[in-house]
Design a protein around this nucleic acid. Sequence first.
DNA 1: CATTAGTCCACTTTGTTGATAGGATAGATT
DNA 2: AATCTATCCTATCAACAAAGTGGACTAATG
Lengths: 154, 154
Amino acid sequence: MLSKKTKYALKALQYLARAKDRGPVLIAEIAEQERIPQKFLEAILLELKKEGFLESRKGKGGGYFLARPPEGVTLGAVVRKMEGPLALLPCVSQTAYRRCDECVDERTCGLRMTMKDVRDRTSEILDSTTLADVESRVRQAAAAARAGAVEYEI
Amino acid sequence: MLSKKTKYALKALQYLARAKDRGPVLIAEIAEQERIPQKFLEAILLELKKEGFLESRKGKGGGYFLARPPEGVTLGAVVRKMEGPLALLPCVSQTAYRRCDECVDERTCGLRMTMKDVRDRTSEILDSTTLADVESRVRQAAAAARAGAVEYEI
DNA sequence: CATTAGTCCACTTTGTTGATAGGATAGATT
DNA sequence: AATCTATCCTATCAACAAAGTGGACTAATG
């Protein structure tokens, strides 16, 4: 499971991707619209800024906005920064490899082989899906839902 | 990341799968061979027994052994019992579905769609891989390593 | 210079992880 | 019955993270 921190981070980034042409967005607006505790979100956005995903402007007319276009931000990158490695075992992490202390022979560890498969499938998806991709899927789903509703009405 | 508890549980089960024709195995033996802290392992094996994966015998000649053949135990089942749902979000868990408190509209949540894909790939692997499968992969890898070594020696 | 907006820091509460210690209990052997 | 032997159970502990709260500080704008 992702921590709420990571989930909130993803939701906030998604919101800012949608609002990218509107200039800086207030923490309060994101918190209200996405129903995230405002103070907690504050800390999360600060961290996202430190990690280079966001920029901010202080004072009146200020707020947060994406540091890069939505096409340039993958879910994998966000999850890794906020949550840690995608891998289920340290010994199969691409970005934070660490030998398992207790492991007797890594090359013939069956667990490792299976968990490497899982890691590969996971990163295949998360590292190729950007905020822009997610948005376009949402729009498709919404369109499909409307089409379905129309059909139902006929 | 899996907790050490889950990792140790999987390693212990794997060990007992390998030892399935030798009768009950001592906690101390598993702890030593797999280099797991013995007292911690004790608690883990007890839990695995409560969950129905293991049986035990007390007194001299006692120890732990698999409650079912290795072909009947999937990694997914073990991980779910020890670690919790495989899903990254509660709203995409098959076994422990829960709506996200803050979610405004689940049907058009882009995050959810992507995380559902990840969950599907993960459970595809873990729910179809048994202790026996893992063992046979280990043997294949060991054989391949030997073949490679021979080739290298020629 | 007052107001608005955002940063930064300190703190709390609650729970989990990973582990250790000590003794109770049940089964086998003598 | 006495005695090993091994699991079972209870309690405790330090370290850490999750999920916030409160409040002081600072920077930009009108």
